[in-house]
Design a protein around this nucleic acid. Structure first.
Lengths: 152, 152
DNA sequence: TTAAGTGCAAATTATTTGCAGTAAG
DNA sequence: CTTACTGCAAATAATTTGCACTTAA
């Protein structure tokens, strides 16, 4: 068990380090810690600066909120994360960087992936002359269904 | 000409008033002024609080910025406007309230309609159990094309 | 009248930045 | 060594709010 845990930790750590080095970012203690939280388990994550800051300090890491903000920005500029804006206030960061739709759960302000497939928007209009599509943001806002599933 | 201008103004004013009363909102001086700017000419508009505030004071209207913010919020709650979030900072308000895709012009931070038709997203995933889709936000981010039209 | 709407200025929220200290290459 | 990174605390930016005043119904 100990061994397994250690192995798993080492694998996660290796993944985090590779993630950083692959983008040419200095593997500082803070960045490694945040990278570990973001991609350590290989699953996709959607975080806000605040939520990642919380997660970090829950593991006992010493990181300042400003650094979390700056780090998320660096990661995004390096192409490691995608920034998603939903509410006008908070910014969400997604470890899955290719275009894909998101669910925004209005009740609890959470963000999650809407599909596993790369999404097919059929009616996508042609970009105007001299312009190209940098990215397509699709946010599907969810609210509790009023009909269908009875609340009883 | 005088006559025509007056007629046009009256028509615009009537439209603005009808727009407000249709939503059961009190037609105060400030609201009528803002409504006039928003729907006076019957065309769709995309504004920010700041841009509408500017537009208002350019016509000589006395409206405070706070009131513009509050008014845009009221209009949105009344279903007269749709709020669109693009950059995480600014909020845009659209006089066209049904779901439709938007172009976001990265170079100048402007927002415009992407299509005239209601947009067909084919691959839209089914909403999760107990949830329904409140709205689908689609923002197509445009940047200057690097290829295609030569810059010479 | 009287509750809703308005205008300040102060308060909030999310994020950025300046700068002195710390650490990676 | 030397340049990038980090951590505060202060600065911004967009938006909201408290409260006295005004106005539409």
């Amino acid at each position: 068990m100990e061994q397994l845990a250690t192995n798993r930790d080492e694998a996660a750590d290796a993944r985090a380090r590779g993630w950083l080095s692959g983008a040419g970012l200095r593997p500082t203690r803070q960045r490694r810690a945040l990278a570990l939280l973001l991609v350590g388990d290989g699953r996709d994550r959607h975080v806000t600066a605040e939520s990642l800051f919380e997660a970090a300090r829950e593991t006992g890491e010493r990181v300042s909120l400003a650094t979390v903000y700056n780090t998320l920005k660096s990661f995004t500029e390096a192409g490691l994360l995608a920034e998603i804006t939903v509410d006008g206030a908070r910014s969400y960061y997604d470890t899955r960087v290719q275009d894909h739709a998101h669910y925004y759960w209005e009740p609890d302000g959470r963000l999650s992936d809407a599909t596993t497939s790369p999404l097919g928007i059929e009616g996508l209009p042609e970009p105007p002359e001299g312009m190209e599509i940098a990215r397509v943001d699709v946010v599907i806002r969810l609210r509790p269904a009023r009909t269908g599933t009875p609340e009883a």
